[in-house]
Every structure is written in structure tokens, then in C-alpha cells.
């Protein structure tokens, strides 16, 4: 197993952890963090799996840079909404009653 493949394997585990976190964690701030763990997992798989033969490939590296910026934007947006919800309701959780 090459080092790159190890990165990809860790990425898969991180992704699964992140998704489980988003599904299970009620606290919104921690849920945003879980989303970031999930994203990082996907990025690791992208760079790790593509370069598994030890040859550097700039294309997935550039894609990950793009992905990171998109994730930053999404995180900022999520934090702004969480903060707004906190200001309006004083809560950092989504209520379950209107979940249907």
C-alpha cells in the first residue's frame, strides 16, 4: 500500500465520520464542523486515489483547491445562518416539531 492510498483510506473514514456527524449531531456549530470533516475526507480521496502510483498530478490538486474555496463559502454561509438563528431564538439547535 502506498502512502497516497493511505491518504485516500483515511479520507474515506473521515467522510463516513462526517456524514454520520451531520446526521446525528444536534448542535449546529458541531454539525457545521462535521460537514467540514466530510468535505476534507472527499478532498483526501480525490488527491490520494488519483496519485496512488506516486506520480504527482496537478489536476486533482487544483480541483481540491477549488473545492476548499467552495467549502469555505458554504461554511461561512452556514455559520452566518446559525448565528442569525441564535440571535433570533437563542437556540443552537433545529427543533424537531416541524420535521414532519
Amino acid at each position: 500500500m502506498t502512502g497516497e492510498l493511505l491518504f485516500a483510506s483515511v479520507g474515506v473514514i473521515l467522510f463516513a465520520l462526517g456524514v454520520a456527524g451531520v446526521l446525528l449531531i444536534g448542535h449546529l456549530l458541531r454539525r457545521v464542523l462535521a460537514f467540514n470533516v466530510m468535505g476534507s475526507g472527499a478532498f483526501l480521496v480525490l488527491v490520494g486515489l488519483a496519485q496512488r502510483n506516486g506520480i504527482a498530478d496537478p489536476v486533482p490538486q487544483a480541483m481540491v483547491l477549488t473545492g476548499i474555496v467552495v467549502a469555505v463559502a458554504a461554511t461561512a454561509l452556514a455559520l452566518a445562518l446559525v448565528r442569525r438563528l441564535y440571535v433570533l431564538t437563542g437556540k443552537l439547535e433545529l427543533s424537531q416539531d416541524d420535521d414532519e
Binding site: 489536476v59 490538486q61 487544483a62 483547491l65 477549488t66 474555496v69 467552495v70 463559502a73
Partner: peptide
């Protein structure tokens, strides 16, 4: 080269995403 030339279009849209979040 990939970010700004070969796949520069991705980068264009990505800046749009960032501006949009703002």
C-alpha cells in the same frame, strides 16, 4: 496553470460562489 488556464472556468465559478456567500 490548471487553476487559471486549463480549468480556469471552474475557478471563475468558484469565485462566484465565494462572492455569492458574501
Amino acid at each position: 496553470a490548471v487553476l487559471l488556464n486549463f480549468r480556469g472556468y471552474d475557478t471563475l465559478l468558484e469565485i462566484a460562489v465565494l462572492l455569492l456567500a458574501m
